[in-house]
Computed example of a mutant assay.
Amino acid sequence: MQATNYAETYFEVLYNDNSDPWQYQTRWYEKRKRDMCLAVLPKEHYNNAIELGCGNGVFSALLAPRCHALVSIDGNSQAVQLAKQRLAESAHVNVIQGVIPDELPTAQPIFDLIIISEILYYLSPNDIDIVITWIKQNLAVGGTLLCCHWRYDIDGFAMTGETVHQRLCQAFNKVSNEVEPKQGQHIDTKNSVFTHQSKIIDSDFLLDVWQYSPESVAMQENLV
Rank of each mutant, 00 (worst) to 15 (best):
T106H: 12
T106E: 15
Q108S: 15
I110G: 04
I110D: 05
L113A: 06
I114S: 11
I114L: 11
I115G: 04
I116W: 10
E118T: 05
E118F: 01
E118N: 09
E118S: 06
L120I: 12
Y122W: 14
Y122T: 14
L123Q: 14
L123H: 12
P125S: 08
N126T: 15
D127A: 15
V131H: 09
I132E: 00
I132L: 13
T133C: 04
Q137H: 07
N138K: 03
N138R: 07
L139P: 14
A140F: 02
A140Y: 02
V141Y: 06
T144W: 01
T144G: 05
T144Y: 01
T144D: 10
L145P: 02
L145G: 01
C147A: 13
C147T: 12
C148F: 00
C148P: 00
W150K: 05
R151M: 03
D153H: 12
I154K: 10
I154L: 12
D155T: 08
G156W: 12
G156T: 11
F157I: 15
A158Q: 15
A158T: 15
T160H: 07
G161H: 00
G161V: 00
V164F: 00
H165A: 06
H165C: 12
Q166I: 02
C169L: 03
Q170R: 07
Q170C: 02
F172I: 00
N173S: 08
K174W: 06
K174E: 12
K174Y: 08
V175L: 08
V175P: 08
V175Y: 09
S176Y: 06
N177Y: 14
N177Q: 12
N177L: 13
N177R: 06
P181E: 03
Q183E: 09
G184R: 00
G184I: 00
I187D: 01
I187N: 04
D188H: 07
D188G: 08
T189C: 04
T189Y: 12
T189P: 07
K190T: 06
K190D: 13
K190M: 05
V193C: 08
V193H: 06
V193A: 05
F194R: 02
H196S: 09
H196G: 00
H196Y: 10
Q197T: 09
S198T: 11
I200L: 13
I201V: 14
I201G: 04
D202C: 09
